[in-house]
Design a protein around this nucleic acid. Sequence first.
DNA 1: TTGAAATTTCAGAAATGTCTGAAACTTCAG
DNA 2: CTGAAGTTTCAGACATTTCTGAAATTTCAA
Lengths: 184, 184
Amino acid sequence: MLSDLQQEFMLHFGEMGSRWGINRTVGQIYAVLFLSENPLCADDLVARVGVSRSNVSMSLKELQGWNLVELRHKPGDRRDFFKTPDDMWQIVRTLVEERKKREIDPTLTKLRQLEMRQTPRDDAYAHARITEMRELIELLTGWYDEMNRLETERLVALLNMGARLQQFARKARLLPARKTKPEI
Amino acid sequence: MLSDLQQEFMLHFGEMGSRWGINRTVGQIYAVLFLSENPLCADDLVARVGVSRSNVSMSLKELQGWNLVELRHKPGDRRDFFKTPDDMWQIVRTLVEERKKREIDPTLTKLRQLEMRQTPRDDAYAHARITEMRELIELLTGWYDEMNRLETERLVALLNMGARLQQFARKARLLPARKTKPEI
DNA sequence: TTGAAATTTCAGAAATGTCTGAAACTTCAG
DNA sequence: CTGAAGTTTCAGACATTTCTGAAATTTCAA
């Protein structure tokens, strides 16, 4: 049912799952869908991944919660078929968005809330530290929001620029000229 | 021992721990160290977090594995004292670096390895999909490496530019001029 | 309606992960 | 050396998460 290539890819995603904050089955199901040219139904996944039907059902629910799979239907067939988006960039955007939502937003909210609080004098350091953290997170997420607004084509162009970015920023006087390194 | 502010911050880090791929105690210990002006020793952490001595020991080991804490010593005291780096940017750089090492590098290696393989004709789609994924990860990590080379000061300047980045890239002819939006 | 196909829910079993106390180990002053 | 202070290790207790099969629910053609 799965080629060696597909099988090994699936097992890798299962193993990495715990590091990525999803469980093994979810990782494996995602991997199989990712490599499949055609949408698959739940029973296809049972056959390919080798876990119970109910586990597949719950895992698909979780993947839908992450917006990582799309639902498809075939005429005259009431089963749900699933596929991953064709566009890798779409997948990356979704992943970053969802991780931000789960891993960063709750903390940002908490930091703001703690900062509001009346702070006793002797907590000044902790308070300052929390502010520092909040400000840095806001800078990074704000910048991420900007990047996210770019269409993929332009974003790729920007990323491909890579090292050259600094030079251009300097030329455009967005950054100070490079300090000359002291000779040894 | 801990103020309300510190306590709530610590508990939040404990709760978020599982989403961040660390366990509760590790998150709590990190939180306490982060807010503490002075380095703390293991027994300080036992008192503040309220877990066993051995748990603190193992958690500190894990934090050291992540390079998220620094070791300090006081003259005439053989205990190890711990603190988080003062520089928030340093912390972010470490976090990203370590997560890349754990969550991305192993997969990049695996993808390259799978790509090398002789692929049967009917696996062309899966093979192409793996290539696509590898190329995108390489683009993103390559760009990350470039950004990582920037000193913090310049990086902050770039991030603060935010939206303006696109305009300047366009002016510098790094991106095509904006398409005029069709009027409604 | 009815009932067959498909899906979801859920209680408990299985597997994993975390935490503790006790024991082992390390270090170093005396 | 010796032993006191500090630290680490680890087996098993405890807690959480994941997985399954059986039962409940939904869907829709006939």
